[in-house]
Amino acid sequence: MTTDKPTVKNLPIAGIIFVPGSAKEYNTGAFRSQKPILDAKLCTKCGMCWVYCPDGAVFVNSEGMYEINLKYCKGCGICSEECARKAIKMVDEEE
C-alpha cells in the first residue's frame, strides 16, 4: 500500500484495491473533539462498548481488558452512553 497518489497511467483496471482492509492505515482519530477514558477498575468486561463501537476502535488487550484505540476512535460517545457501569467518561481533547 502506498500513500503516494496514483495517476491515471498506473491505476489498476476498475480501480481495484489489492490490500484488504487497508483503511486500517488511515487515522480517523482526527475526527475527535472528545475522547473516551475507560476506567478498568469499574469495567465488568461485558463487551457492550466493543459491540456498539461503529469504528471497531474498542479491543481486548493482551491482559483480556477492554481498551480504546485512539488511532481510530472518532469520539462519538456511544461507548460511554451505553456502558451500564459508567466506566467510560468523555473528556475534551486538548489542543
Binding site: 483503511a23 486500517k24 488511515y26 456498539y52 469504528d55 471497531g56 481486548v60 484505540n69 488511532k71 481510530y72
Partner: peptide, 29 residues
C-alpha cells in the same frame, strides 16, 4: 451471548463514516 460474537473485524477501522454511524455498527456484525 456477546462473547460468542467473533473478535475478527471484516469491516475494518479507518473507514470514514460520520461519528456514531448506525450503518457501520450493523455492517460490522
Amino acid at each position: 451471548s456477546i462473547k460468542d460474537i467473533p473478535l475478527e473485524e471484516y469491516f475494518t477501522p479507518g473507514h470514514r463514516a460520520c461519528q456514531g454511524c448506525g450503518e457501520t455498527i450493523a455492517v460490522r456484525h
